[in-house]
Each structure stands twice: as structure tokens, then as C-alpha cells.
């Protein structure tokens, strides 16, 4: 029933942009929460969204950005299904990892149907990042070192065992013939924390993503991207990063960059956000901002997004079972 209604709103939004403009924005200043430490993929999502929204000038005040670390989204999810479930101007960044954690039960007694998935704003791909002074020039070199002394090379990533980054590391290891149970995996609150640990020498590699890694390098962080988990090299200036496939690891890892809203957000507020985001994602500014953050365009909203999330949930369950994670 809601889907039908949403579909109607989407239709209206597409056909009658003027009507959308006439609707009123939700009360108070809007906030985008990155449920992690700064400088990760969630942060990137909020920063990008802020630029898009502020550039369009549709909010009475600039978009606020906040951080709510804790279980890479678990604490935020609990807040958005609890105390803050009805905030009509609070958006929370999510990724495919959020879906993985939900599928695994890491967020507590919750499931994906409890919040309102607003939009996928962009597409990113997983990447393996090391320090630029690291001894490993490419993925095979790193894998060879891991094969030799698995416990000497700490792999960092967002989320715990069973989370998306761990899973990417574990699957890479398995594909390279390394027992993933021998790996040392260090969990962080997002890619930003992992990068910090990497630069401090506490971990040797991070299962980060292309967008936040490249953005970090733009900001002067001394990193080296060994591989991107994409079916083929990414376009533009990202084409210098070889894929994992090229280096003998046939694994793709598309990363969702999206935002969701609280479980009890009013249909009206949800519709307002959905209509505006759908319109903005079609703009030239949007494409330019995506490029700045080294992200790929993939605007998805509405039923398409719900379907995508359902598929992801199934994939996550299958992969967890395959890796023997309860």
C-alpha cells in the first residue's frame, strides 16, 4: 500500500516538479548522521549530500553533519528505530555493510524493514589500502606475505567478524588460498578509523573503499590503493588502480552509498526528501560532486531500492553461510 503511494509520489515528482517545489520542507534544520568515526564512507556520503543540498539551496539552513559511532551503524539504527524514529529531518548514511550487519543480526533484534530507506546516492567499490611506504607493491605481494605469516599482517576494516569489510578480506584470503581463520582482523568504526590505525602502523592494510581512500589521498594522506574490487577499472582518474580480478582475485564488491530515515517519519516528510533527492541526482552539479568524491553515479530510490536491499540481504546471508559465520 505504501509502495503504491510512494510510486504515486514519485510519478508526481517526475511529472510535476512545480508541485514538489510547493511542498514545505520538514521543520528545523536537517542533519545527516554518519554512524561511524569521521573520514569514512558514511562521512563521505553526508559530505557529498551536504554539498548537493546546499548547492541547490532547498534547505532553510545548511545541512548539519553529525557522527554517531557504535557498531558501525548499530547504535544509530537502534536510535532511529527508538528514541529518534520520528525525526523527519534526520538522515542516516548507510552502505551495503548496513544490510550485511542487519542480515547477520549484529544490530540487535532488528531487520531491514524497520526503517525507511530513502535513496542510494552513489555507487562505490571496495578497495585494499596500504600505507604508501608499505613493502607490497600490489595485491599478490600482500597476499604472499599474508600466506607466509598471516598473524603478522593485521587487516583492518569497518564492522566486526561477519561484517562487510571482514567478509571482503576473508573472501579475498580464501580466493588466494589462505585460511581466513588465521587472519588477524581488526575492527574499526568505519574506514576513517582504519586509515588512522594504518597511518599509525597499528594495522597493515585496510578494507576501505575507493571513494574515501582517494578522497583521503586528495587531503594528503600517504596511502596506496593496491586493488579495487570492481568488475573492470573505474573510469577517469581512478583507472590507474588495478582491479582485484586483474591480480588474480575474482571478487567484485560494489558499495552502496545511501541514506535512510527513522521508522516513524511521516509520509509527507519522507516524500519531500525523496522527491528532492531524485531531482537533484539528475543534475550536472551532482555529477561534478560525485567526481570530486571519486564516487560513481547510481541514483536509486523507491521500490527499486527496496528490491536492491532485499537482494543484498539474500546475498549477505548466503555469503555468511558460505564462510561459516553464524
Amino acid at each position: 500500500m505504501r509502495n503504491l503511494w510512494l510510486g504515486l509520489v514519485l510519478l508526481l515528482a517526475a511529472v510535476l516538479p512545480g508541485m514538489v517545489h510547493a511542498q514545505t520542507a520538514p521543520d528545523g534544520s536537517a542533519t545527516c548522521i554518519a554512524p561511524a568515526q569521521p573520514d569514512g564512507g558514511f562521512d563521505l556520503t553526508c559530505r557529498m549530500l551536504a554539498q548537493v543540498l546546499d548547492g541547490a539551496g532547498i534547505l532553510p539552513q545548511p545541512l548539519q553533519r553529525g557522527y554517531m559511532p557504535g557498531g558501525v551503524g548499530a547504535v544509530a539504527f537502534n536510535a532511529m528505530t527508538g528514541t529518534r524514529a520520528a525525526e523527519g529531518n534526520t538522515l542516516v548514511a548507510f552502505s551495503e555493510g548496513t544490510i550485511y550487519n542487519l542480515a547477520k543480526g549484529s544490530f540487535g533484534d532488528h531487520h531491514a524493514g524497520e526503517v525507511r530507506w530513502l535513496a542510494q546516492l552513489a555507487q562505490d567499490y571496495g578497495a585494499i589500502v596500504v600505507r604508501d611506504d608499505a613493502a607490497w607493491a600490489d595485491l599478490p605481494a600482500l597476499l604472499a606475505a599474508m600466506r607466509k605469516e598471516p598473524q603478522r599482517i593485521a587487516i583492518g576494516g569497518g564492522g566486526t567478524i561477519g561484517g562487510q569489510d571482514w567478509m571482503r578480506g576473508a573472501m579475498t584470503a580464501e580466493l588466494a588460498g589462505i585460511d581466513h581463520r588465521k587472519l588477524r582482523f581488526v575492527a574499526f568504526e568505519g574506514a576513517g578509523s582504519c586509515t588512522q590505525a594504518l597511518l599509525e602502523g597499528f594495522v597493515q592494510a585496510c578494507m576501505n573503499d575507493m571513494g574515501d581512500a582517494r578522497t583521503g589521498m586528495d587531503a594528503g594522506k600517504p596511502l596506496r590503493i593496491l586493488a579495487v574490487f570492481a568488475p573492470r577499472r573505474l573510469p577517469g582518474d581512478l583507472s590507474d588502480v588495478p582491479t582485484a580480478r586483474e591480480q588474480g582475485v575474482p571478487l567484485d564488491w560494489p558499495v552502496m552509498r545511501g541514506v535512510y530515515m527513522g521508522a516513524h517519519v511521516s509520509d509527507q516528510d519522507f516524500a519531500w526528501w525523496q522527491a528532492h533527492l531524485a531531482r537533484l541526482m539528475a543534475s550536472a552539479d551532482y555529477a561534478r560532486i560525485l567526481e570530486r568524491y571519486h564516487l560513481q553515479a547510481k541514483p536509486v530510490t523507491g521500490p527499486a531500492l527496496e528490491a536492491e536491499i532485499a537482494t543484498l540481504t539474500q546475498t549477505a546471508r548466503a555469503r555468511l553461510a558460505q564462510l561459516g559465520v553464524p
Binding site: 547504535v75 540487535g108 581488526v186
Partner: peptide, 8 residues
Amino acid sequence: LVQIGDVA
């Protein structure tokens, strides 16, 4: 909900 560091 929260587990960071050497989770194993």
C-alpha cells in the same frame, strides 16, 4: 552491538 579492535 559494538565490537572494535581485535574482535577475535
